[in-house]
Simulated assay, not measured.
Amino acid sequence: MPPRRKLFALTLTLLLAGLPAAPALAADVFRVSAIPDESPTELQRKFKPLGEHLERKLGMKVEFVPVTDYAASVEALVNKKVDMVWFGGFTFVQARIRSKDGVEPLVQRAEDEKFRSVFITPADSGVSKLEDLKGKSVAFGSPSSTSGHLMPRSFLLAAKIDPDRDLRVSFSGAHDATALAVAGGRVAAGALNISVWEKMVAEKRVDPEKVRVFYTTPPYYDYNWTVRKDIDPALRAKLLDAFLSLDPAVPADKQILDLQRASRFVPTKAANYASIEEAARSAGLLK
């Protein structure tokens, strides 16, 4: 090599050696989000131990990415801004359709095989059945919520009550906000998922002597952790094992399961949510 070229090569090598290391590739971070069915601080609190567990199992950094509303959680997964999302049954259906079948549910809580919603009202309201709601103000969660809107709406329709015609409907945005709206007397009744209701009662955020459940829906499939179908198969296998290996007999695992309101996680599949899609189409919420 001519002396001038040798000098250039040596200079280039020294310059490159002095450069900082390249930033980690996006693939080195596993990004997770969730529908905002509770307050942002509560979602972060619930996810922290699970995120640390996933980091150990996956061998990579796990980052929680909050979103502003249900639609944003769907778009984040469809547009590959995140790798996994905690969806309700309806938001999973929306994401599957938006992605042209590019996403799949991975696991659900055992409780999600027979999930339920509750309708609540102030203890002294005189409301005792769904038909008593006609003409009254009723709060749902998000318009895209399975347990806070879609399924309660479908059971109202089955009872010959058209929410758009027979009720004064409002949307609180989240299950806990619905319960607080009823407790605060801002609406005559509200619909929310049974898990959040039971948690709020246990935490004394609502007083069951002042706010009562007057209707509990029949069971249906609901929440799941959904992933993109294009994630690496080996990573998917690790992820599945991370959830299925959580053991309630192990104290650290039990803490994670308790925060997720789960006895355990089980595999799930898209076919489990066919009835949710049917209900959404029947209610006119899915075109």
Rank of each mutant, 00 (worst) to 15 (best):
E75P: 04
W197T: 02
G135A: 11
S195V: 15
N272P: 11
A123I: 04
L133M: 03
T91S: 10
A72W: 01
L10Q: 10
D232F: 11
A249E: 12
L235E: 08
N224A: 15
P40N: 09
R98I: 03
V74C: 07
D83H: 15
E209G: 12
R205S: 08
I97Y: 01
S282W: 07
D164N: 12
P143C: 05
G102H: 00
E278C: 13
A22I: 08
R228H: 05
P49Y: 10
R109S: 11
E278L: 10
V227M: 05
S147W: 01
F8H: 13
K57N: 12
M151G: 06
Q44Y: 14
L12S: 10
D83G: 12
A27F: 14
K134M: 13
A202M: 07
K269D: 12
D207K: 01
E278R: 11
E55R: 10
L15T: 09
V65W: 06
S125N: 03
A191F: 00
G89F: 02
L246T: 02
G59V: 05
L167D: 02
K46F: 12
D83M: 13
P36R: 04
Y223V: 08
K61F: 13
S263M: 12
F92T: 00
T41M: 09
D241R: 13
P163E: 06
K100E: 11
A22W: 15
S145P: 05
A181V: 06
K254A: 09
P248V: 12
F92I: 00
K287C: 04
Q260L: 07
D37I: 10
Y273Q: 02
R212C: 02
F243H: 01
A17K: 09
D162K: 08
Q94Y: 05
Q260R: 09
A191C: 04
V196M: 11
R264V: 05
A22C: 12
F171P: 00
D241K: 15
P105K: 00
M60L: 14
R165V: 13
P66Y: 15
F171S: 08
L244W: 07
L246M: 08
Q44D: 14
R205V: 03
V169R: 03
L77Q: 01
K6E: 14
Y221V: 11
D69L: 05
E63M: 15
V118E: 00
R96E: 06
R45W: 14
A21F: 09
L240A: 04
L43W: 07
A279H: 02
G173S: 06
K287F: 07
Y220D: 05
L25N: 15
P208R: 06
D132Y: 11
T121S: 05
T41P: 03
E111L: 02
K114M: 11
A26L: 09
G184R: 00
R109P: 00
P152L: 02
